[in-house]
Amino acid sequence: MRQIVIYILLMVVVPCFSQNSDDVTLKNLAEQITIKATSPEEPVCMNASLFLAKENDLKKDVLMVKAKVHENWHIYAFVPEGGFFIQSELKLKLPDGVEATLVKEPSVYGYEADPQIMLYKGDLLFVYELKVGHQVQGEHEITTTLSFQPCDPYACLPPNEIKVKNKFVK
């Protein structure tokens, strides 16, 4: 009986701890990603890093995309169809045999001028879990592209995009 209770507890509690420890691991890994300082001339900076499961005590290979939007600036997380602004896009160019699933994305903020529009502000973190097929061997590359139009209360800068390439070896 005791063993059954212990077994049940383990089934419930361990996943919770695992989830929490995964979150902590991801947070620690995110802190390892460096991005350059933003400025009014360059209000959005981005970097991406690949963390292989076996090297980082993770269940799956993970691609983390970290971005920062300068104080008082925003980019558009969601714009309704036909809306005024340019919705940001995060695209991954993956090698054949690699799939990515977005498992974590940043919080969004409402836009006073139009509540249907959502904004990204401040520090952003996107986390993708990767599924790498067995046939994927050798050196490969993932290209991450963030496209956006940054605006502050007084102007919108021209649209821009930032590309980051990450290599990995299987």
Binding site: V79, E81, G82, G83, F84, F85, I86, Q149, P158, P159
Partner: peptide, 10 residues
């Protein structure tokens, strides 16, 4: 030449 919102189909 530059992106300006609105409905692309329109």
């Amino acid at each position: 030449g530059y992106l300006f919102g609105g409905d692309p189909q329109v």
